[in-house]
């Protein structure tokens, strides 16, 4: 029982990281049909941003969060503007295209920062933890959870309260109709990319709290994040949240009960089984398209 409870913060923090990564993916996928394999490299860019900034000031970790958002977001914007917008309507080709970009970015990181992993020292106030009702809650993992909650609330507010967010939802639901209504869909696309990639950068900073930073950091998380998108349903905030929490816990508990190598296979089997019941994920955008 004790072990069961102690695994809780780990599962939650894995879910939080997955959620931060999957948010960007689910919107670029749902809105533009783009499968961005280079998303993982935006995570890496965020993590290296934290590495470069550390030690500059006493609060450089907190400063790293918005800076990483900007760095990764601009990278995403550049990718969309230079390459991806030529590929709309060819989702499988974008997948391969962005994989090519991700190879180049990883090698670039290897050349600039070196192949060995680097370490970001967590700020003092995130070291240690607190005991709550017999559960050990490490500060660093709690911080990641809070960060994810703040980001999700922010995205939710953006989608529901701001005109720009309404435009984005309109494009996700029906691109043509949105265009006919006078929405500049191209600009909305670019902004979605900026937002999604920026969140990946933030996730990268969060990941520096729980592990080292290396050129392959992104590839480690990208597959799980894509599974969150598949299980959650496209372009759906609540789907992404639920699926990320489910997969985060499933991953951490299965790893605990069996071993890490079997856990991944079991998660895969679970997802295939889940798709037998809900082939389009937890939540489906209602539309008139043939499915």
């Amino acid at each position: 029982m004790g072990a069961l409870v102690n695994q809780l913060p780990i599962g939650l923090s894995i879910a939080a990281v997955l959620l931060l990564i999957a948010l960007g993916l689910t919107f670029t996928f749902g809105q533009m049909g783009v499968i961005n394999m280079a998303h993982g490299e935006f995570i890496m860019a965020g993590a290296y941003t934290a590495y470069l900034l550390q030690g500059l000031t006493s609060q450089s970790f907190l400063i790293a969060l918005p800076v990483a958002f900007a760095v990764a977001g601009l990278m995403g914007l550049l990718l969309e503007w230079s390459l991806i917008r030529r590929f709309y309507g060819r989702p499988l080709d974008t997948l391969l295209l962005t994989w090519g970009v991700s190879l180049v970015l990883q090698q670039l990181a290897r050349d600039v920062f070196g192949a060995p992993n680097v370490q970001v020292t967590a700020p003092g106030w995130l070291v240690g933890g607190v005991d709550l009702l017999g559960v050990r809650l490490p500060y660093n993992r709690m911080f990641i959870v809070v960060l994810a909650v703040v980001c999700v609330v922010g995205v939710w507010l953006y989608l529901t309260r701001l005109p720009a967010g309404r435009r984005m939802r309109a494009v996700v639901q029906d691109r043509e109709l949105a265009a006919y209504s006078g929405i500049a869909t191209g600009r909305v696309d670019r902004f979605t990319f900026l937002l999604g990639s920026g969140l990946a950068g933030v996730a990268g900073v969060a990941l520096t709290l729980v592990g080292p930073v290396g050129p392959g950091l992104g590839t480690f998380y990208i597959v799980d994040a894509f599974l969150v998108v598949v299980a959650g349903g496209l372009g759906q905030l609540r789907g992404a949240v639920l699926a990320a929490v489910a997969l985060g816990f499933l991953n951490s508990y299965l790893e605990f009960w069996t071993d890490a190598s079997l856990a991944k296979v079991l998660v895969f089997v679970a997802i295939i089984a889940f798709l037998q019941v809900r082939p389009q994920g937890m939540f489906v955008l209602k539309g008139r398209a043939l499915v």
């Binding site: 996928f29 049909g33 499968i35 989702p91 499988l92 997948l95 597959v223 894509f226 599974l227 998108v229 598949v230 071993d259 890490a260 190598s261 079997l262 991944k264 296979v265 998660v267 895969f268 997802i271 295939i272 798709l275 037998q276 082939p279 499915v291």
Partner: peptide
């Protein structure tokens, strides 16, 4: 299992990739 449920296109690509990831981790483990 996948095609019968009309899981296709990018979804299928992602699932096949996840299978590759899981397979390798299993082999190493």
């Amino acid at each position: 299992l996948v095609f019968r449920q009309r899981v296709r296109g990018a979804y299928f690509a992602i699932l096949s990739q996840a299978l590759a990831a899981a397979f390798v981790i299993l082999l190493i483990g």
